[in-house]
């Protein structure tokens, strides 16, 4: 401000010159469609600990394997307190049973009755379970716990084993039970006078 007070004319000329320079530069970095060059390149190796998602085809499943029996042992130490014996009657979500109940008045949504993909089970257990210690299980342990939960739902025999090849091939009972959003399925009406309440 003081510069303007002391040399108003010089300041004005300077400001005009500066604004001309600025407007000339201005169009360069913000041109639509041009990257700004911000951010740091990141290599796949750097991302290994974050890049843990498993897709519906099983892409991303790590090497390793686990058996139903090993899974039961882990379940009974790490999971049973919340999910209950046999994946039922716990304080957390029910994991087993409910098959055939979805179209009834008392549907029971479990891994076996509702989840469309077994890959989701591995992905979720690996990223978010056990609740008191997320991302603490090794891949073999996640395969094992997944195998046990599938076994509780009759989807893997007692001597079963899961790995990256077999997990995506498990056919979940509700695999075809989902449809992409097809709303509007309910259309309200704008009656103003002598309407039928609730209609």
């Amino acid at each position: 401000m003081s510069m303007f007070e002391r040399k108003p004319l010089a300041a004005l000329v300077g400001a005009l010159a500066l604004s001309a320079v600025l407007s000339a530069c201005h169009s360069q970095p913000v041109r639509s469609g041009q990257p700004l060059g911000l951010g740091t390149p990141v290599a796949a190796a750097q991302l290994a600990a974050w890049d843990i998602d498993i897709d519906a085809d099983g892409r991303g499943l790590p090497p390793g394997s686990g058996t139903v029996a090993a899974g039961q042992r882990i379940y009974e130490t790490r999971c049973i307190a919340c999910h209950g014996v046999g994946g039922q009657n716990g304080i957390a979500d029910r994991l087993a049973g409910g098959q055939g109940s979805l179209a009834t008045k008392t549907p029971v949504r479990t891994v076996g009755s509702f989840w469309p993909y077994a890959t989701t089970l591995f992905d979720y257990v690996r990223r978010a379970m056990p609740f008191d210690s997320p991302q603490s299980l090794a891949p073999d342990e996640v395969y094992a716990v997944s195998a046990y939960v599938l076994h509780l739902n009759g989807l893997l025999p007692a001597d079963g084993r899961l790995d990256a090849a077999s997990l995506p091939r498990i056919v979940m009972p509700n695999r075809d039970g989902f449809k992409v959003d097809d709303r509007p399925d309910v259309v309200g009406t704008r009656c103003m006078k002598d309407c039928v309440p609730g209609s």
């Binding site: 998602d53 498993i54 897709d55 519906a56 979500d93 979805l102 179209a103 549907p107 949504r109 891994v111 509702f114 989840w115 469309p116 993909y117 890959t119 989701t120 992905d123 979720y124 978010a128 039970g177 989902f178 449809k179 992409v180 959003d181 097809d182 709303r183």
Partner: peptide, 21 residues
Amino acid sequence: WQSRQETSKYTDLLPDGTSRQ
């Protein structure tokens, strides 16, 4: 990806047993 939050949760179960996803 068919994550847990878009399959087991946040899907709308309908009377015929199918769910809107």
